[in-house]
C-alpha cells in the first residue's frame, strides 16, 4: 500500500466524472423517463376515457333505437287512424254526392214531366182548337180568338 500522488489524480478524475454525469447524463435520461411515464399514464387515462365514451355511446344508441321504434309505432298508429278517417270522409262525401245526384235526377225528372205536361197541354189545346174548329165548321179567326184559346189552354 504505497499512497502517492495518484490519489490526487484519481480524485480529480472522479470529480470530473461526477460533474459530467450530473450535468450531461442524469438530467436528460431522467427527463425522458419521466416524460415516458407521463405519456404512459396519459395513454392509460385516454384508454379509460375512450372506454367510458364507448359505453356512453352504446347506451345512447340503444336509447335512440328505442325512441325510434316508439316513434315508428306512433306514426303507424296515427296513419292507421288517418286512413280510417279518410275512408269515413270519403264514405260521407260519396253518400252526399249520391244524394245530390239523386236530387238532381229527381228535379230533372220533375222538369221533364212538367215539360211533357206542357207539351201535352199545348197539344191538347191545339187538339181542342182543331176540334172546336171542326165542331164550329166555321172560320174561326185564330187571331181574334187567341185570347180565348190561350185562356183555355191555361185552364187545361
Amino acid at each position: 500500500m504505497n499512497i502517492n500522488a495518484t490519489i490526487i489524480g484519481q480524485a480529480i478524475t472522479f470529480a470530473i466524472l461526477i460533474w459530467f454525469t450530473m450535468k450531461f447524463v442524469w438530467p436528460p435520461i431522467t427527463a425522458a423517463l419521466d416524460e415516458r411515464a407521463q405519456k404512459i399514464s396519459d395513454g392509460l387515462a385516454a384508454a379509460e376515457r375512450g372506454k367510458a365514451d364507448l359505453q356512453l355511446a352504446e347506451k345512447r344508441s340503444a336509447d335512440a333505437l328505442v325512441e325510434a321504434r316508439q316513434k315508428g309505432a306512433e306514426i303507424i298508429a296515427m296513419s292507421e287512424k288517418r286512413r280510417a278517417e279518410i275512408i269515413e270522409e270519403a264514405k260521407a262525401e260519396a253518400i252526399a254526392e249520391a244524394e245530390r245526384v239523386k236530387a238532381a235526377a229527381r228535379a230533372e225528372i220533375e222538369q221533364e214531366a212538367h215539360r211533357a205536361r206542357e207539351v201535352l197541354r199545348a197539344q191538347v189545346s191545339s187538339l181542342a182548337v182543331a176540334g172546336a174548329e171542326r165542331i164550329l165548321r166555321r172560320e174561326v179567326n185564330a187571331q181574334a180568338h187567341a185570347d180565348l184559346l190561350s185562356a183555355l189552354s191555361a185552364e187545361l
Binding site: T6, I7, T13
Partner: peptide, 10 residues
C-alpha cells in the same frame, strides 16, 4: 488503494 481512497475521500 490510491484509487479507492481517492474515491472515498472525495
Amino acid at each position: 488503494p490510491n484509487h479507492t481512497f481517492a474515491m472515498s475521500l472525495t
